[in-house]
Design a protein around this nucleic acid. Structure first.
Lengths: 354, 354
DNA sequence: ACTGGCACTCAGAGTGGGTGAGTGCCAGAG
DNA sequence: CTCTGGCACTCACCCACTCTGAGTGCCAGT
């Protein structure tokens, strides 16, 4: 492994370089390091270490005689060797409490969370909706809308409400008929979790076919298909985003701004990226852990030039969905990682109890 | 009026300047104009006209000897004297049809519309949700959620579903009690439009007070307050946005990008701006008309440096809400105005029938 | 009212020397 | 073997300078 060659002190130098560069946005030279950090050695020694780091492709010089800048690989090693994630300040903890304290429902909690995280990190914050697989169906309703449409309303345990319209082929339906159908479907699915409800619904379909009068089979199928759709729908394919205004900090995103804006609008790219990253964090540590993806590592998503920090959060016992931030490669990893971790933990606790 | 002094031809010159500048993003000089447009006169004559235009503060020279650039006032006059709004191409009309043809419900229609408009204009598109004041209440439902919460679901004519949770002070409520309350409220409001439903609900409150058993008054009030809230809620305070990726075109938004991103995230600013503008367009013409707000005119909203084109669209007979685009001052007003108008008209027709 | 001509202006591109931060390397000390 | 001080060297950047050409303003002539 290449990193074996870098000594204790070289690593410290790398940390110094990353730290200074993140703070000042200017290539940092050996002299600067010596006078800003209390290494016990002279600039020449630092230079030797820097030569080594450059050999390992951890830092690079923009032009022949100027200070050094971390490479993507350098940031990566920096993050991996980040020993103590600086804990949040008291003020920040208080902000979390205040912000998330009294959320009305799940949607509200997530909206607040993502805004908070954006504010805390000064980056673009992203949170994925939880999957709700283990959430109970609390109520289901069918309402005739117009003459050939039926609105299916599904209410879940966490207070989430989903609605979708089933269009029927011309035939009129009576209030009573809709009511009867509703009773049967409700009887089958209410009280079960979504996964079980899908099963129950599939079984029910057969008996519904018998219940249906002459010529009604098609109507019944249309409605039950919509209900099935709703039960199966993957809620975790949506994300909430906040802090897009942070993208305008000039010079940060050199040429990647278009890609980032597009990703925000597309959502699906971010979804994949954050999901992947949260999974990685989960697999690695024994505990819920934060993972980062830096620069070129994001190339498959067209987001080279950016860095992403993500982790999963727990909901109904499952660490189903991801939360994190997206920013320029040159970001303050230490505090951002701390913020993502803290917010994810708080969120896990908060939405469990509601 | 100052504009009286500008002759027919000077105005044509202004149009040429705006047109060329929008196309090339470079100050345009007298010579360029002569060779690109078939004026029957020499460059010197054009220069005289330009001197006049500069006198009127319609164009300005970035530096002493270079071509001219339209001022905000120049753009304004240009837009006001835009005679024939170029009609959309056949391909564009076809795109509108294809895009909006089969929308599922109101939300879907609006989402498609705004994306279409963004694509058509290459700008940021904004559409405000309609107010629904005249929309009928089709169904109302109360569902006990947990032990001390009641979920109120409101279903409106257009297929819009609103939900909100009422928290009760500790006391348990029975299914039957909730059901009874639901029957009464539904009886009062279902079938009325939102405005009338609010009235009915207020009247109902009194009789509900009697109906309520000992100690239940508070519970009833909590629930009916939430229902009232939902009936009164102004749905038109939400907007949908698309095309944010268009902001990244470099050089377009010189220094205003932060303000724009912030406005997009805040929404309330855009809401006011677009609402104001749509109203202006409505008041001016005899027919639904498109209005523009250019550069400094947007200063109250912190959006100097941008131009906004907006109009209203009709829903349930009312021209309640606005639709339009936001872009740099240097934009193609002719085609963008055409696009906004066409999409607004199509939308007015489309969501009426669903 | 329009035109051709002419002097004038000035941004931007190109040039060249000076400056200094920063490097690489080496010989010597601990 | 590690660290240090010293020294030559390299460029990016800054500044001052010149040159060029697009474009203007004005004026006398048609």
């Amino acid at each position: 492994m290449a990193a074996d060659r870098v000594s204790e002190r070289s690593l410290a130098v790398l940390h110094a370089i990353v730290g200074d560069f993140v703070a000042t946005n200017e290539p940092v030279g050996s002299k600067t390091i010596v006078e800003r950090h209390r290494f016990g050695v002279s600039a020449a020694t630092i230079r030797n270490d820097m030569a080594l780091l450059e050999d390992e492709d951890l830092i690079a010089a923009p032009h022949t005689s100027s200070g050094r800048v971390p490479t993507d690989k350098g940031y990566r090693l920096y993050v991996d060797t980040l020993a103590s994630v600086r804990p949040l300040t008291v003020a920040q903890r208080a902000a979390i409490e205040r912000f998330l304290g009294d959320s009305r429902d799940l949607d509200d909690a997530l909206a607040r969370t993502v805004r908070l995280l954006a504010q805390l990190t000064n980056q673009v914050a992203v949170v994925q909706y939880p999957s709700l697989r283990r959430t109970q169906v609390r109520h289901i309703d069918l309402v005739a809308v117009g003459e050939n449409r039926v609105l299916c309303v599904l209410i879940l345990g966490t207070g989430v409400v989903e609605q979708q319209i089933a269009s029927l082929p011309s035939a009129l339906v009576t209030e009573a008929w809709v009511h009867g159908l509703r009773e049967r479907i409700a009887g089958a699915v209410v009280g079960r979790d979504l996964e079980a409800a899908v099963e129950a619904m599939l079984t029910l379909s057969e008996s519904l076919d018998e219940w249906a009068q002459q010529g009604e089979a098609e109507l019944v199928r249309r409605v039950s298909d919509v209900v099935l759709d709703q039960l199966r729908a993957n809620r975790s394919d949506r994300i909430a985003i906040a802090g897009a205004a942070n993208l305008s900090r000039p010079g940060e995103f050199s040429g990647t701004l278009p890609a980032v804006l597009e990703a925000i609008e597309e959502q699906v790219t971010l979804l994949r990226l954050f999901g992947e990253l949260a999974r990685e964090g989960r697999d690695r540590g024994d505990r819920l852990d934060v993972a980062a993806s830096i620069g070129r590592e994001n190339e498959p998503y067209g987001l080279q030039g950016t860095a992403v920090i993500a982790t999963g959060y727990e909901h109904e016992g499952e660490t189903s969905s991801s939360i994190g931030v997206l920013g320029p490669v040159r970001m303050d990893y230490a505090s951002n990682i701390a913020a993502v971790r803290a917010v994810a933990r708080y969120l896990s606790g908060a939405i469990g109890e509601s």
